[in-house]
Write a protein that binds this DNA or RNA. Structure first.
Length: 398
DNA sequence: CTACCTGTTTGAGCATCAGT
DNA sequence: ACTGATGCTCAAACAGGTAG
């Protein structure tokens, strides 16, 4: 039974990673309480919490967050501190992500306990009203969507949010209907390092960091300016002027991301004449990841590849052409017009392009080898339908 | 003339401090 | 741990200037 293996696995992982996680089985429904590293429930019956060593500025433990892009888009308007809480939630559930929600029973409740020092720097004196305001705001955040059958749903992400006065403990309960959305990653998600992300103090820097992390494996991210404005939530009148986008979004965000996170980022504007129509970001990893983080990154890469291959396999010819056209436009400027034409119009080439693109976009191919790998995969495959093996699964520093 | 840049103002929210 | 006050930062808006 697939569902019964989940609690065992997650609690085993939690034990291995030294987290405080309590799994209980109630009415055949799985309920999990997550405790952050700074707060732990004591063994008494009443609701009482013990504080553990608060996080220090010297936090070097790599802790991964995997954020589904659909969630990122749905929650683009979170304030800085709300987003920190939301990231902490994603970090706590990373051991049970990748699961197909249909394979497990509905969750009774996922409850999270954090300490206010998890989201506010150690040396900052915080006020109760301040924390209460954050909780009040986060408790109001809602998402909505409509299914193909026309069912429109609107619900609050954290219907129950509490602050335990005197202990500084924040409790969040995730809406059960949203749990699949938090757990199901597909192949479209951002993966980044929690403690670097928590240092960001600008809303735009936080948002942009998620997007840049999503495309970091590619080393490059090209986005239409209007699309960029939309995903940044910068749709007000003042952002019709590019200078405002540059001054208020790009420059502060670039500076913070480069200063605080594991990414080295820069951007150039592209367009006709002086009119900026799109942005091209260059993304590089600063340092070699720790062993544990490397293992998780490798695991993620494999998962992403599998999901991407499945997605592409279900594409119609037309969808493959759209997919390939966008990739060629954004990432393969060195290909000639004739080569691009051949790829888009020869089903055999198109297929191989799509598959090779899955390997590249999931980080299986060394960053400096994308063009060569793609050329070889499309035009000079080693076997009949065989792609050359990616040379390196590790992403390089350059 | 258009698109972008620079400087200024304003208000909201965040960070910080002194004191309880 | 907590409160209340204060100063700072950031987002937003606007006016006027400049490059192409």
């Amino acid at each position: 039974m697939e569902s019964s293996s989940l609690p065992a696995r997650s609690s085993r992982n939690a034990a291995r990673k030294g987290r405080h996680q309590q799994v209980t089985q109630e009415n055949n429904q799985l309920a999990i309480d997550f405790y952050s590293e700074t707060v732990k429930k004591s063994n008494t019956k009443s609701q009482s919490f013990e504080l553990h060593s608060a996080q220090t500025n010297e936090m070097i433990v790599k802790s991964i967050v995997r954020e589904p892009m659909r969630l990122l888009h749905a929650l683009m308007h979170l304030t800085v501190l709300e987003r920190r809480l939301y990231w902490l939630v994603l970090n706590q559930i990373r051991n049970i992500q990748y699961r197909n929600p249909d394979q497990v029973k509905p969750y009774g409740a996922l409850t999270f306990y954090f300490h206010s020092s998890d989201i506010i720097a150690n040396d900052v004196k915080w006020s109760v009203t301040y924390i209460k305001d954050i909780i009040k705001l986060l408790g109001k955040r809602a998402v909505d969507w409509e299914t193909e059958e026309g069912v429109y749903t609107h619900l609050t992400v954290f219907p129950t949010a509490q602050y335990i006065r005197g202990k500084g403990v924040i409790m969040l309960q995730l809406h059960p209907l949203l749990i699949p959305g938090f757990l199901e990653l597909g192949n479209n998600f951002a993966q980044f390092e929690l403690y670097a992300a928590l240092k960001l103090t600008s809303e735009y820097a936080q948002l942009l960091y998620s997007y840049l992390s999503r495309h970091a494996w590619r080393g490059k991210w090209v986005i239409d300016l209007n699309a960029f404005k939309e995903i940044m939530g910068a749709t007000s009148k003042s952002y019709e002027e590019f200078s405002n986008i540059r001054i208020r979004i790009l420059e502060p965000a670039m500076e913070q991301i480069s200063k605080f996170t594991d990414l080295d980022v820069s951007y150039v504007t592209m367009g006709v004449g002086r009119k900026v129509s799109s942005l091209e970001f260059t993304i590089a990893f600063k340092e070699v990841n720790s062993l544990e983080a490397s293992r998780e990154i490798e695991e993620t890469s494999k998962h992403k590849l599998k999901e991407a291959l499945e997605t592409v396999a279900n594409y119609t010819l037309e969808e493959k052409q759209i997919f390939a056209h966008a990739s060629l436009r954004d990432y393969y400027s060195q290909f000639t017009a004739d080569e691009k034409h051949q790829i888009l119009n020869t089903p055999e080439f198109l297929n191989r392009f799509c598959i090779a693109e899955c390997y590249i976009s999931s980080g299986q191919v060394g960053r400096d080898k994308h063009d060569a790998y793609m050329r070889k995969s499309v035009f000079f495959p080693t076997g009949a339908n065989q792609l050359p093996a990616p040379n390196s699964a590790k992403k390089g520093k350059n």
